[in-house]
Write a protein that binds this DNA or RNA. Structure first.
Lengths: 244, 244
DNA sequence: CGAACACTTGATGGTCCTCAAGTCGAGTGG
DNA sequence: CCACTCGACTTGAGGACCATCAAGTGTTCG
C-alpha cells in the first residue's frame, strides 16, 4: 500500500548510506551491500535547506554534487533579462549539481520547494573511490546519462506537443516518480505553483490552469488547487502516445 | 586564417589519439601528453558511416560511446507515431552515445548527415583506464555535464523564445562550434535540411524558411540555399540576449 | 477582517501551423 | 544541350492555439 507523501518529512536519519530510508536510488542503486558501506566516505556533509532557499546558484564555483534525502527542488536558469526558466523538478533520491562539472560553475539555481535535506558529495571523492569500488564509476555514468535522456524527453515535449499533452506528460512523470519512491501515484499534492509548472513546460500560468480544468472536464483528473487525484491514468498516458 | 569546412574530408588519419587532427576536444582535452598516449587503448575500432546511414538506432543495446573524427551527425528520437524529432547535431570532436549508458540501450538514432568517421570506445575501457589515468574519469564527467548543459540551453530556447530567436541562436551556436574547430565561423554550408532544423527547433520547415528570409531582410545574414554568410554576428547575438 | 497570494476564467490578438502554389537547383536521359 | 523530374526551398492565405490583459474567486495567515 502506498503512503501519502509528507511535504516536509521529519525523519530522523542515520548518517549512513547503508541505512538510507530511500529505496534503490541515488548512487547506491545496483551496488553490492559491501560497496554501499564504502559510500559513506563520499558524503562530505548533510545540509538542510528551507523552503525558498537555494542549495547553490548559477555561477557559483562547482563544489560538489548533491543527493537529495528529502524534499523537492527546482532547478532554474536565470536569463539575461532577469526572468527565470525552470529546467526540472527534483525528488528525493535524485542528484543535483551535475550541470556544474563541465564548466566548473553551476549553470542553474537549485531552490528548495519545501524543507529539504541533501548529502553533499565532492566529485573528486567519487572519482577516487571509483578506484576501489568498481561499479561506482559506472553508476555515476548511468545517473548522468539518465539526466541527459530526461532532458531530451522534455525537449520532445517542448518541441512538438500542445499544451494539454505537455501537462498530461508532466502529471504522468510526477506520478511515476512518486510511485518509484513508494508514494501514492494517483493522489498527491504538487509542491510547485502553476507559474512554476508553466515555466517548466513552456506555457503561461493561465494556460496551465486552463489545461488543468480541461483535463478535469475530461474526467482524467480531479483538481483542488494543488491537490491532484488521477482518475484515469491510462487515459492520461494515451494523451502522450505520440511523445515516447 | 580560417579554412572553409570540407563537407566530406578525405583526411588520412593516423590511428592514434596523440596525432589526432582534431583540436583539443573529445576525451583528450586537458590531459597531459603522457596520458594522451594511453588513450589509444580505448579505441576499439574506427568506423566509416555514409551519408544517411546510422551509427546506432534507438533501442539497440548500448555497446560503446563514439568520438566523431569527421562528418556531421544528427541524433533523433523516434516518436510512437513514427515521426522523428531531432535532439541535436554533432560535429567532429564531440561524443555520441552517452544517452545509452543509463538504460543500457540507446535512446536515439544517430545518423550521419555526410560521410563520417567515428572512434568506437567501449565504456568499460574508459572506466578501467580511469584507474591509471587520473584525469580521464573527470574528463568524461565534464563531457557528460556539458551535454546536460547544452540540452538545457535548447530547453530554454524551446520553452520561451520566438521562432526568429530560435533560428538566430541555432546559427550562432553552429558558428561558434565551427570556429572552435578552425572552420570559418561566418561563411559555411549547413549540412542539414530546413526540415531538420525545424525538427530541432520545434518549428515547421516553412517557418524556418521564413525566418531565414527575415534574418536576411534584416541584413544579419545572407542566405543562398544551404550556404550561409553571417553579415552581422553581434546583431545575431543580440537577438538572443534574453536567452543566456 | 483584510491583505497577499495562488488560482480560475473570459476576451482579444499575435504567432506560428497548415494547406497550397510556386521557384530553384541538381541530376538524368533523350 | 535541353527537357524532365525530383527534392529542397520559398512564399502566400487562412485558421488554430496560446499569450496577453483583465477581472474575479479562493485560501491562508497575520
Amino acid at each position: 500500500m502506498h503512503k501519502r507523501r509528507e511535504p516536509a518529512p521529519a525523519e530522523q536519519y542515520t548518517a549512513s548510506c547503508a541505512n538510507c530510508v530511500l529505496p534503490e536510488l541515488c548512487l547506491r542503486a545496483g551496488l553490492s551491500p559491501e560497496d554501499v558501506k564504502q559510500l559513506d566516505q563520499l558524503v562530505y556533509a548533510r545540509r538542510k535547506i528551507r523552503r525558498g532557499e537555494d542549495l547553490y546558484r548559477a555561477g557559483y564555483p562547482f563544489a560538489a554534487i548533491y543527493a537529495i534525502r528529502s524534499g523537492f527542488f527546482k532547478s532554474e536558469r536565470v536569463l539575461k533579462d532577469g526572468r527565470h526558466q525552470i529546467m526540472g523538478f527534483h525528488m528525493p533520491g535524485e542528484m543535483l549539481g551535475l550541470d556544474g562539472i563541465g564548466t566548473g560553475a553551476y549553470a542553474c539555481n537549485a531552490v528548495a520547494l519545501e524543507l529539504a535535506e541533501v548529502c553533499a558529495i565532492p566529485l573528486y571523492r567519487v572519482e577516487e573511490l571509483s578506484h576501489q569500488v568498481r561499479d561506482l564509476a559506472h553508476r555515476l555514468h548511468q545517473i548522468m546519462s539518465e539526466e541527459i535522456v530526461r532532458d531530451q524527453r522534455v525537449m520532445v515535449l517542448l518541441g512538438g506537443r500542445g499544451a494539454e499533452a505537455r501537462l498530461a506528460s508532466f502529471l504522468v512523470d510526477i506520478s511515476h516518480r512518486f510511485s518509484a519512491r513508494g508514494y501514492a501515484p494517483a493522489d498527491f499534492d504538487l509542491p510547485m505553483t502553476r507559474e512554476e509548472i508553466g515555466s517548466y513546460l513552456g506555457l503561461t500560468l493561465e494556460t496551465v490552469s486552463r489545461m488543468f480544468s480541461r483535463l478535469q472536464a475530461e474526467n482524467l483528473i480531479k483538481v483542488q488547487q494543488r491537490h491532484i487525484r488521477v482518475l484515469d491514468s491510462s487515459g492520461l498516458e494515451r494523451m502522450l502516445e505520440t511523445v515516447v
